[in-house]
Structures are given as structure tokens and as C-alpha cells.
Design a protein around this nucleic acid. Sequence first.
DNA 1: GATTGTTACTGCAATTTGCAGTATAGAGTC
DNA 2: GACTCTATACTGCAAATTGCAGTAACAATC
Lengths: 216, 216
Amino acid sequence: MPDRDLSTTGYLTLGLLAAHDWSAYQLAEQLGRGVAELWPSADRGRYAVLNRLAELAYVDTRLEHTGKRARTIYTITSSGREALAAWLRTPPRPPSVEFEGMVRVLLADQGSLDDLRGTLQQTRESALANRDMFARYAAYISATGGTFPERRHLFALANTFMIGHYDHILRWTEWAEQQIADWPDTVTPATANEAQVRDMLTPGREVWEHDHPGDA
Amino acid sequence: MPDRDLSTTGYLTLGLLAAHDWSAYQLAEQLGRGVAELWPSADRGRYAVLNRLAELAYVDTRLEHTGKRARTIYTITSSGREALAAWLRTPPRPPSVEFEGMVRVLLADQGSLDDLRGTLQQTRESALANRDMFARYAAYISATGGTFPERRHLFALANTFMIGHYDHILRWTEWAEQQIADWPDTVTPATANEAQVRDMLTPGREVWEHDHPGDA
DNA sequence: GATTGTTACTGCAATTTGCAGTATAGAGTC
DNA sequence: GACTCTATACTGCAAATTGCAGTAACAATC
């Protein structure tokens, strides 16, 4: 009963292999496209984890050739399937965010208003791009079934989360841009705009939670 | 004009020092409480970054004593302030999430319905706890000004995001729990419940986006 | 005076990242 | 038929980061 001897990237890889065989390159590609927004990993690590999987005998390998160029194909073993199922029985780690832009917001009094505006603008733009990407992805899955037709119901759950997540960031940036619109600088609103600050901190009044795009 | 010679944790530390002096222990503590939800870092790394800051002459150090026990107090230098301001002028990295629970959702067909239910339940509970924590924090800042009264306007922006973020996770889990409520197992809904899957994937119908708690 | 908790860190192995590098295959193009 | 461009298919290595354990003094209670 192995349990914590493998990284989450390892179990994710095992999960892809549970559907069918993949080459190392394909696996690295899959973990980069789409899934990386949920579980980030460096390209280098995606290859490294395969050696670990082989070491634990969770996968079998075989070589295929295209002319002189070799590639390794991975197959999940029965003990690999068991390990994956065992892992799914363990409790999940809570989700975490890494939001460098928000660090910049917290320290914005050490920079200019334009710095702060720029941070919000870029955050908004990337959130918009990502939201649209997942929206297109939803349409693609709905139309074709996607790369894993047998998992479309699960992809639908995850995809809905991702759209909502980026939508939330988007609406927050729009709200924040409105909040700072009348700031004379990055420092004085702490004391000058007491009413506004209190208003921001008062729960139950998250205006930006409502009337977002996506509704007709 | 230094730019990328320091990690984000380094600039964050510099940002705390921009307000006033801190001991290494206090800095490590601050980066653990509250800010860790925005910019995660290992306890060990928070100490390591201080040596790097001293190396770059962005901080000065002095020793204080309580009996035989020493502690190092850090002060930001003028070149430290310049480096921080210069960093604030650079573009931010887009936010990223690490959501192990969602990996489990994607691979849920390799486990039981109870596994999936457990993942959603634990995600929901931790999101609820975190949302309430930030809600209490908002009340605390509103009442006392918090640890950085001069930054309360910036904390208000960040805090509002965090509450909305955990609220979004919470509402998504509740929605997802409803979606899987009538699933007979983790595999068949892909083909058996085509209408439901299509419904989940259809944009503009995120029911869970609306009528959330926090409203009267 | 014994135990428990908080302050105040350091050492080290293992993992992970980031970047660069190598080399073949195939498709288009002049 | 030589040339460029992109995709395939990875490996090596330094640097950064994590996770965990360990040390030790002070502070308060039992």
C-alpha cells in the first residue's frame, strides 16, 4: 500500500496513463496544455517523474522508432493502477494560489499609481485571455468530446471551475480599478478615504460579485 | 538598476521592511500568517532570503539580545528602497493556482464516488474556513487598522479578493456536489448523462455564480 | 524543578525549476 | 537538391526551494 512515495505530478501522469499509453513527449505536452493551470509543473520535471514511475514499477516502458529517432512509450501496470486508486482514497491538499500581482498591490504605496494601474490592467488582461481559453475549451469538449471523451463529465466540472476562477479575477480587477480611480496617490487613501476603506472591508457588499459578463 | 536578481519573496520581505524594522523571526512569522495564502513560501526560505538581501546591500543588520539569546534586526537601505520601487515598475507574473483536489476530480473515474465526494467535501470545508478567516481579518483591519494601518486601503483590496476567491471555491464545490448527487458511479456519466454534461459545459449558465451567502 | 510553549534560528538531503543544449524528422520553398 | 523552419524527443546541470529535523535559550505554569 504505497501512499506518499510519489509526487502529485506523478499521480497525474499515472492518471493519464490509466486512459491509454503515451510517449514521454506526449505526456510532457499534455501536462503543459490546459492541466498546467490547475497543477503547474516545469517541463523538465515531467520527464523526471517518468523515471520515478518506472523505478516504482508503476509503468512499463518500450521503445518505438521513427527512422533513427527513438521514443519511449509508457504503459501503466496493475500495481500502478492500484497505487493511483490508493492515492485517490487519501485526503486532498487544500488549493493554493500564487499571486505576485497581489504582492505588488499590497506594497503599492512604495510605487506609483501608474505601477498599480499597470498591475491591475495586466492581471485583468491575462485573466480575460485565460477565461476565454477555457470557454473555447468547453465548446471544444462539448462538440468533440476532447482528448478524453470518457472523462468529459469530469472535465466539465474542472472547466467550469476554471472559467469561474478567471472570471472572478477579472471582476475583481475591474472593481479594483474603479476603487483606485479617484485616488490622488498610492499612500494617502489609507487615511483620507476612511469611508471608502471601511466600505471595501464591509462584508456582504461585494458589488463586483454580481452582474458579470457571461449572462445574457 | 537591479531587476531580476531577487525572488518575489525577497521583494515582499523588502516591502515589509519599507514600513519599519523587523527581526528575522518576525519577518518569517509575517510571511506565514495571511500573506502565505497569496504568496506561499517555506519557512526555511524566508530566512534564506534575508542573507540574499544583506548580500545585495538592500538591508542593514544589527544584533539585539534578550539575555543570552540573540536576534537579528533588519533595516532597509536606500538602495533597497530603490530596488523595491524599480521592481514595482516591472510587469507582474500572471496568478497561478495549485489545486491538487481538482487533479483528483479529473482522475475521479479511477476511484470511487466516495473518493470524489470526500475531495469535494474537504475542499469545501477548507474554503469555508479560509473565507471566514479573511472575513474576520477584514473586520479586524476595519476596527484596529491592523499591523499596517498606513496600508489599510491596499489590504482592503487584497482582502476583498481573498474572500471572493474562497467564496468562489465554496460555491463551486456546492455546485459540483449537486451535479454528482445523482451519479451512479464515477465512470458512466460521461455517456449516460449527455444532457447534463452539455449543460455543465454551456457558458452563461453558471448557476453557482449567483445567490451566494454574504448577501442579506 | 519539570514540563510545555514560544522565540530564534541553522543544517542538510531531496526535490524542483529554469535554462540551455543536442539531434532527428518532416514539410515547405526557391 | 539544398535550405530553412517547425515539431519531435529528449538530457545535463546549476541554482533555488522545500521539508524536516535539530538546537537552544527564555517564559510561564504546575
